[in-house]
Structures are given as C-alpha cells and as structure tokens.
C-alpha cells in the first residue's frame, strides 16, 4: 500500500513539474479571427524569429473573441475580421487606441465540386445543392456579408432552408473541405493560403462585399513595446506583402 502511494505521488509530481505555468516567459498572445488565421500565423512566426519572443495565436470568431476580451481574456492584440468588434472594444475602453484597418478581406463562394458553376447564383437554388455553409452571422463578419449578398441578389428566400451555420469560418472550411456541404462562403484569405491553394474552386464577391479588417492593441500590462511593434510589423511593407500573398487587399 505504502509503495502504491509513493508511486502515485511520484507520478503526480511528474505531471505537475512537467507543465509549470509559462507566465513568467515573455510572450505575446494574439487573438485572431478564424478568417485571418493563416496570414496571422505566418506574421507571428516571422515576428517571433525577428524579436526572439514567443507569439501564441488564438483562433475564434470575431464575436466570440470580443466577448472573451470583455470578460478579461489575457490577449495582447486582437485582429478582427471587421471594424465593428474592435470599435466595440474601443468604446468599452478595452483597447489602447482606436482600431486600425490593416487590410480588406473578400468573401468567396467555395466548392470542391467541379460540376457546380459558382458564378451562377441560379445554381444555388438547384436541388443538387443541398447545403450552403456560412459562418454564423451573429458573431462572424463573413457570415453577415454572405447573408447580405444572398439577400441583395434575391436568392436568400430560395436558399434559406439550405443554410448551415458554422460556429466560425473555420467550421465552414471543414464542411466544404470534407464535402459535408456542396458550397460554402468563406474568406479569400483562407482559400489563398499556401495550405489550401488550389483546393476546389472559388469565386470572389464584388468589392462592395469586402470586409474592412480591424486590429487593436488590448489594454494590459504585458510588453507594451512589443505589442506596438507587432502591429507596426503587420502594417510594414513586409507585413503588407504577406497579407497580400494570403489573399488580402490593401487599399
């Protein structure tokens, strides 16, 4: 019995010492809208190498991340898929400064199926298309644009029953990629990322549906200089080039 207890305590000790909190190491935590994940991860890796600092990227829908920040989540910067949520945080005095627009993101209609002509909105009504995935419009800016697009093109009524809502744009990507749905509305920054380039077929929506992408520095005591530098890096020529490579537009 004593032996067993000793063994157990030893095991317990091992688990504990193996994951000591990493709080005291310099680290930036960046909350990122799911649509910007690939570009931001690339920017984070580059920044991390340059400044020899750990940068964690946390994904979610812009709305969910905003709720978390309001509730005190320890994020240092927030890259939203729109301006609405950063403005909201600014108004609630959660940010250092006013939101900055770092790029414009285009929503795209995306499918894995060759036989679907995504240029034709009429085809969305076709019974062969059973599901159309969009990100939840209540917390995901790209979802909101998708709804507006469908409504303005007068197809919303006839496709409403086909809509499947992803928790964020990430879930839409999974659905389309696994062919769980025939068609989905995602971001150009997803389908243009090196990981997904050339997979399936996409059509970019017109300029009027593009989304202004906003970034803010969150008010907290962590590394004020580094936070500023990260934002400056994203806005630098090198940062812009990466953003463009990942499908964003800089106007």
């Amino acid at each position: 019995m004593i032996k067993k207890i000793t063994l157990f305590i030893a095991l317990f000790g091992m688990v504990f010492t193996s994951c000591k909190p990493t709080n005291n190491i310099d680290k930036l935590t960046i909350a990122t809208a799911a649509s910007a994940q690939f570009a931001l991860k690339k920017l984070a890796i580059n920044f991390s190498k340059k400044h020899n600092i750990k940068v964690d990227v946390i994904l979610g829908s812009s709305g969910k991340l905003t709720t978390q920040i309001i509730n005190g989540a320890p994020y240092d910067l927030f890259f939203s898929a729109d301006m609405y949520y950063p403005k909201m945080l600014f108004n609630k005095e959660k940010t250092e400064k006013k939101p900055i627009t770092y790029a414009y993101g285009a929503p795209v209609i995306w499918t894995m199926r060759k036989d679907i002509a995504i240029d034709s909105l009429v085809q969305l009504k076709d019974p062969s298309i059973k599901h159309l995935a969009i990100a939840n419009p209540r917390n995901a800016p790209y979802g909101r644009k998708a709804i507006r697009y469908l409504k303005q093109k007068n197809v919303y009524m006839s496709v409403e029953h086909k809509l499947v809502y992803g928790e964020s744009i990430s879930q839409v990507n999974e659905y389309v990629l696994n062919k769980t749905v025939e068609v989905g509305v995602t971001a150009k920054s997803i389908v243009s990322s090196p990981k997904l380039k050339g997979k399936g077929f996409f059509k970019e929506l017109d300029k009027e549906y593009w989304v202004k992408q906003g970034a803010v520095i969150i008010k907290n005591k962590n590394l004020p200089e580094m936070k500023k530098q990260f934002l400056e890096y994203v806005l630098s020529e090198e940062g812009k080039e990466i953003l463009v490579n990942y499908g964003y537009s800089i106007i």
């Binding site: 909190p21 935590t29 994904l59 979610g60 989540a73």
Partner: peptide, 9 residues
C-alpha cells in the same frame, strides 16, 4: 466557455 483556449494555461 470559461477557459478561452490559452496554450499552457
């Protein structure tokens, strides 16, 4: 809901 997906924490 309460954790927020923070690495190591």
């Amino acid at each position: 809901m309460i954790g927020g997906n923070i690495p190591g924490e």
